[in-house]
Simulated scan of single mutants.
Amino acid sequence: MARLVESGGDYCANKFERTFPRGFDVEVFTMESFERVYQESTEPHHREHVTPYYRENPQEFETVSLTADQVFDEPYMRDRGELRITLDEADDYELFRRIYAQVEYDDILPVDAAIKLIDDEDLQRLNAHVKQKNVK
Rank of each mutant, 00 (worst) to 15 (best):
H45W: 02
A90M: 12
R18L: 10
A128V: 06
Y76L: 07
E40Q: 13
D119C: 05
C12M: 13
E32K: 14
P21Q: 01
T42R: 14
V103C: 09
R97A: 12
I85G: 05
G8M: 04
D112R: 14
D106T: 12
R47N: 11
R78E: 03
R84V: 03
D88N: 13
E62S: 12
E6F: 01
A113K: 15
V71H: 07
E17N: 14
Q39G: 00
H45E: 08
E6M: 08
E62G: 08
E104V: 05
Q39P: 00
D112G: 10
P75V: 07
E62Q: 15
T67S: 11
V26W: 03
E6I: 03
V26L: 11
A128M: 05
R125Y: 00
R47S: 11
Y76G: 06
D10T: 07
D107F: 00
S7L: 03
L126N: 08
H49I: 04
E121S: 12
H129Y: 00
I99A: 02
D79P: 00
I85P: 02
V135H: 02
L87G: 08
Q39C: 00
D107A: 07
H49M: 02
V50M: 01
I118Q: 05
A90P: 10
V130L: 02
E43K: 15
A68K: 08
K15Y: 08
Y76K: 09
N134W: 08
G8A: 07
K133C: 00
E104C: 03
F72P: 10
F34S: 06
I99Q: 06
R80T: 11
S33Y: 04
M77H: 08
Y76V: 04
N57R: 05
A13N: 07
I99M: 08
N134I: 05
P44I: 08
E82L: 00
T86K: 14
N127S: 06
Q124G: 15
Y105T: 06
E17C: 02
L126Q: 04
H49S: 08
S65M: 09
F72V: 03
K116S: 09
E94M: 12
E40I: 04
D88A: 07
D91C: 05
R22Y: 11
L4T: 02
E27Y: 02
A90I: 14
I85R: 05
V130C: 13
L66Q: 04
E17S: 12
D119E: 13
I118E: 06
T86H: 10
E94L: 13
C12N: 03
V71F: 03
D112V: 09
T67I: 11
L83M: 06
S41H: 01
T42Q: 12
F16D: 09
R97V: 04
S7K: 04
F61L: 03
E121N: 11
P75N: 05
G23H: 01
I85N: 07
D122L: 03
T19Q: 02
